[in-house]
Design a protein around this nucleic acid. Structure first.
Length: 491
RNA sequence: GCCGGUAUCGUCUAGGGGUCAGGACACGUGGUUCUCAGCCACGGGACCGGGGUUCGAAUCCCCGUACCGGUACCA
């Protein structure tokens, strides 16, 4: 049984890099019928709170990455908050001391800094490692220090041998034991360091694979030392590359939104984000397919398809993915998603979900190819959802306040009145006939009517718009345009 | 400094001893149309550098370089 985990620190929101790591873990678990565990690394009590944890969970929920064990869901290997497992880490560290794999260290961080500075000043190189002073302590030495009440940390004895492992992404990676020092696993305040808590938890929670950020590669040998000292099996590691900003620097606010929730707020769809993130640093190999549903990703995912190099987060491509997924949404589903956007914009009416739902769906279908994000529908379709479309002054000046336009519009209004049915063909025919009769180009009239109906110069096909607006509203807008023409410029 | 990782169009990537080095996003041009979007067609654009191995290297090896990460009683 494959068991993987995502172990974020509760920073208050889910970063896109973390989201991708979570996604890879989730896909791997789902692909192989394994278990996806969510564990919160909140040992730093100062910097974490329940609200921050919820921020992370919200991000995961939005992406649709459900966890089998973790906060709220529980599980047999809990608790899933590191802050609740402190005793466990302490006991493990003591056990390692008892086993001879670790020892008490009474050197203070200050002692060590002084030694390091001195050593590096004389040698000129920064390769000083902890000199194992406390490793050599006799029972009497220790007793004496304990009597003095000296604070003590716990360090593991790092082996001399080379530590190598087979990374699922990078292949074989080896570290010379000479570069490993006896590192601290339990601080003098009784708190574990990161190395102890992750290994301890990953062992306790029976992780078979550790899929995490590239930045942990150099930590891995230390952790392997711990696994071995603990007599636990070493999991398979897969270190996934980082996500960078457009300047190839670590992704930060300066590059735009870094929180997945922020993208949710901007109107991106979770299925698009999932698709985009999955293909950022992972490729299904053969075939040119790029658009995947969640299920298709699960079926295609494999750790071996993860590339070794860092990837740049490219919003334009995200936009494209969003568009692709937007277009493949069934009409009713699209309406359901647009509703909250219109509500926020004050453009929603319950009839859109009731008597006028067919009309509403038709409007959305018409706007669809022009929308990149769900939020775009509010702006793109404003004139459908309110009786007071916003007239763009420049558009009015250019297309409405022109010579003879007043009379042209009156003629069109009359032509519309006379139509037996108000459909795309009849309205188009009517406008073209007026153009011919009055000796103007049809395009001129079409542009003018577009501004009259929508307030802007760009819209879907004019006659589709007119028909959806209906004869009454169309006539009302033409009338409104006439008063605009008559009103003083700028007024 | 030391340790580790990575290097194919601007970006995400496929491929991998002999290929016209493929696709996608973005970009440019043309077409369609009432505008915009879309759609269709076409186009420009890449194997980091230097050595070596080889009949042949983008591919394998070495060395550089660049970038990223680590080098803590941070996670």
């Amino acid at each position: 049984m494959i068991r993987v985990r995502f172990a974020p620190s509760p920073t208050g929101y889910l970063h896109v890099g973390g989201a991708r790591t979570a996604l890879f873990n989730w896909l791997y678990a789902r692909r192989h019928g394994g278990v996806f565990v969510l564990r919160i690394e909140d040992t730093d009590a100062e910097r974490s709170s329940e609200a921050m944890v919820e921020g992370i969970l919200d991000g995961l929920r939005w992406l649709g990455l459900d966890w089998d064990e973790g906060p709220h869901t529980g599980g047999t290997y809990g608790p899933y908050f590191q802050s609740q497992r402190l005793e466990r880490y302490r006991a493990t560290a003591e056990r390692l001391v008892a086993d001879g794999h670790a020892y008490y260290c009474y050197c203070t961080p200050d002692d060590i800094r002084v030694k390091r500075d001195a050593a590096e000043a004389s040698s000129g190189v920064g390769t000083w490692r902890y000199d194992r002073t406390c490793c050599a302590l006799t029972g009497d030495d220790i007793a004496a220090r304990e009597r003095d009440g000296r604070p003590r940390a716990i360090r593991v004895r790092a082996p001399e041998r080379t530590i190598a492992f087979d990374d699922a992404v990078h292949g074989s990676i080896a570290f010379d034991g000479a570069n490993l020092e006896d590192f601290v696993i339990l601080r003098s305040d009784g708190h574990p360091t990161y190395h102890l808590s992750v290994v301890c938890d990953d062992v306790d929670m029976k992780m078979t694979h550790v899929v995490r950020g590239d930045d942990h590669i150099s930590n891995t040998p230390k952790q392997i030392v711990l696994y071995q000292a603990l007599g636990a099996p070493v999991p398979t590691f897969a270190h996934v590359p980082l996500i960078l900003g457009s300047d190839k620097k670590r992704l930060s606010k300066r590059h735009g939104a870094t929180s997945v929730i922020e993208y949710a707020r901007q109107g991106y769809m979770p299925e698009a984000m999932v698709n985009f993130l999955a293909l950022l640093g992972w490729s299904p190999g053969e075939g040119d397919r790029e658009v995947f549903t969640r299920e298709q990703l699960i079926a295609a995912f494999d750790l071996s398809g993860i590339s070794g190099g860092n990837a740049v987060f490219n919003v334009e491509k995200l936009d494209w993915f969003n568009q692709q997924h937007l277009w493949s949404l069934p009409p009713a589903e699209l309406g359901w998603r647009v509703k909250p956007v219109l509500e926020r914009a004050g453009l929603w009416s319950d009839v859109y979900a009731g008597d006028k739902h067919a009309w509403f769906d038709a409007v959305l279908q018409l706007l669809k190819t022009r929308a990149k994000k769900i939020d775009d529908f509010a702006e793109l379709g404003r004139y459908f959802f309110t009786m007071e479309p916003a007239y763009d002054p420049a558009a009015v000046a250019r297309h409405l306040r022109t010579d003879g336009m007043r009379d042209h519009l009156v003629a069109i209004d009359e032509a519309f009145d006379a139509l037996p049915t108000f459909d795309v063909d009849t309205t188009e025919q009517a406008v073209r006939t007026v153009a011919e009769v009055r000796g103007v180009k049809a395009a001129t009239l079409i542009h003018a009517v577009r501004v009259a109906l929508t307030g802007r110069t760009a819209s879907p096909g004019l006659f589709e718009v007119a028909v959806l607006l209906g004869r009454q509203v169309t006539k009302a807008r033409l009338a409104q345009a006439l008063t605009l023409i008559a009103s003083p410029v700028g007024g």
